[in-house]
Amino acid sequence: MSTPNPPAVRAYLARVRTALADLPAAEVDEIVEDVRPHLLEIAEGLGDRATIEAMTEQLGSPESYAAEVRAAGDYPPPPAEGTEGAEKPTGSRRAGARLALWVLVLGVGALALVGFAVGREFDAELLGMLVLIVPALAAAGWYVWSRGTGPVAELPEVRRVRSGASRRAGSLAVHLRTMAPAWWVLCAVLMGLSALLLVIRSSTAILVLPLFVGIAALALWAGPRSRTDRRLLWASVPVSVFVFAVGSGMVGYLADSLEDSTSESPYQYTSNTAYDGEPGLYYGDEELENLYVFDADGKPLRDVYLYTEDGRPLTVPRYGCEESTQSRITQGRDNRFPRPHIEQGGYDDEGNYNGYNAYRPSCTESDEVPFTAAIPK
Rank of each mutant, 00 (worst) to 15 (best):
P4I: 05
P6K: 01
V9S: 02
L13I: 14
R15Q: 15
V16I: 15
L23W: 06
A25L: 03
E27A: 07
E30Y: 10
V32N: 04
P37K: 03
G45K: 04
R49C: 03
R49A: 13
A50C: 09
I52T: 14
G60A: 02
S61F: 01
S61Y: 04
S64Q: 12
E68S: 14
V69S: 09
P76T: 05
E81R: 12
E81M: 11
T83R: 14
A86M: 12
P89M: 13
P89T: 07
P89H: 03
R94Q: 08
A95F: 01
A97I: 03
L99R: 13
L99I: 03
W102H: 15
L111T: 04
F116Q: 10
V118T: 09
R120E: 02
F122L: 14
L126S: 03
L126G: 02
A138K: 04
Y143P: 04
Y143S: 13
T149M: 10
R160A: 06
V161I: 14
S171P: 00
V174K: 02
H175I: 12
W183T: 08
L186N: 01
C187N: 06
V189Q: 03
V189K: 05
L196Q: 01
V199L: 00
T204V: 11
L207Q: 00
L207S: 00
L218N: 01
L218H: 05
S226K: 07
R231P: 01
L232Q: 07
V239F: 10
S248T: 15
S257W: 11
E259G: 01
S261Y: 03
S263Q: 11
S265Q: 09
S265T: 05
T270F: 02
S271V: 10
T273H: 14
E278D: 07
D297P: 02
L301Y: 09
V316L: 11
E322R: 07
E322N: 15
T325Y: 10
T325K: 13
S327D: 15
G332P: 04
R333K: 11
N335W: 06
E343D: 04
D349S: 13
E350N: 05
N354P: 00
S362I: 07
S362E: 11
T364K: 15
E365F: 08
D367I: 01
D367V: 14
P370R: 04
K377R: 09
